[in-house]
Design a protein around this nucleic acid. Structure first.
Lengths: 228, 228
DNA sequence: ACAACTATATATAAACG
DNA sequence: TCGTTTATATATAGTTG
């Protein structure tokens, strides 16, 4: 794809490695965009260069919305997809984790609240709590330091609480929405059954009577506990 | 890059869209691998196709290790990178979130505890920290209370977590059970509709044809997203 | 649906400014 | 260290089996 064919192995020269990274990175991002647009799909890319810079791009996630529930997938595939999702998160987290470690110094300087909100782990939070406790202890546990400790906690954690609550609400809202949809489907199905029965009744006698009896025993929405 | 130049816009034909997705997806993954090897960098890709399948690949994160602390980067860049990291996580989360929503049915079958561990940990911790801060204050900041603060944290956390998890599990189990019942009702209704249609079809001609068209437009369970 | 095959469009390595 | 150019390698659209 250039003047020469290049072997796919580490480029030794630092400068040309950086040049190549820049070119190919742009190429990759453009390809991702095209894939997203052409095929109506979502694509996200995370890159960490050898100089430790992070690059990301993300395209097309709005399209996934339209496809809600549009596909039937067999159980095996679904199970695999479920596992794969966690694997994906695991991979992303791994890269992000390394980035965090590599850039620990800088990330420390960022707004603490921002950290709490976004992704500070439980363990990190405990460390901070302990550290703050140590500080307070050294201070000979003055009331002042404890007061400020509490304030700090509250400030940082109220943000966290808001976000957590939000996440839980979203999660539950999903379940409830699904329930509503099922309910609506039930009603549509039930009314269709009723309509068909009405049309059917005057047409046949012996056989018809039986089948109408059948369905009236099973189908009326009134007999279904959850439709009320 | 093929026999014809293609405009970068949604491919209308579903089949050729899928074919293109498959080809370009493989191309993108290969490009990512090459970038990772050539430039000693980490690359992760997340894709969700228009049929809702998730594809991921991740290369080269072992290389980042070698570079630990090897680069000095000016403060401005670091700040930007820090923000960018959060943005990246946000993007990934967005795609993952949509995937979770789209595949809510399947994901529900996955380990619920795993989910709750993620969803609940922050809020639990918040409650405990605030509670403990209150206690310490009331205790008039004795050194003893500070010493035991950590232990109390741990004990209270495990109790709270267990209880919260239990409550949430019960609540969700309820919702899930209700959903299952609704689903079963839907299936019964759908099968009754199908049965009635079958019996109905051979009986009439002009009117029958129309009504069958009508019902096939409205009634088949296949068109109802949540029945699958 | 899936693979193999070209003809052609694109990406990019090296050169240059 | 950049952007631009150009020769060439690669990716892939359409086709075929």
């Amino acid at each position: 794809m250039g003047r020469r064919k290049v072997e796919i192995k580490r480029i030794e020269s630092k400068s040309s490695r950086q040049v190549t990274f820049c070119k190919r990175r742009n190429g990759l991002i453009e390809k991702a965009r095209q894939l997203s647009v052409l095929c109506e799909s979502s694509v996200a890319i995370l890159m960490v260069s050898s100089t430790g810079k992070l690059y990301t791009s993300s395209y097309g996630d709005r399209f996934v919305e339209k496809l809600w529930g549009s596909n039937a997938i067999d159980q095996e595939t679904l199970d695999w997809n479920g596992c794969h999702l966690f694997y994906a998160i695991f991979c992303m987290e791994k890269i992000i984790k390394r980035y965090e470690i590599q850039h620990a110094d800088e990330l420390k300087n960022l707004d603490l609240e921002e950290k709490f909100r976004k992704y500070l782990s439980y363990k990190e939070l405990v460390d901070i709590v302990q550290c703050k406790c140590e500080e307070a202890k050294v201070d000979d546990a003055s009331v002042e330091s404890l007061n400020s400790l509490e304030e700090q906690f509250k400030a940082a954690l109220s943000v966290t609480r808001a976000r957590k609550t939000q996440l839980m609400m979203e999660f539950l809202k999903n379940l409830e929405e699904k329930e509503k949809l099922l309910r609506e489907e039930n009603q549509i199905l039930a009314s269709q059954l009723t309509k068909m029965e009405k049309k059917r009744l005057p047409e046949t006698e012996g056989e018809g009577a039986m089948s109408s009896e059948n369905s009236s025993r099973n189908s009326p929405p009134e007999t279904l506990p959850l439709l009320k």
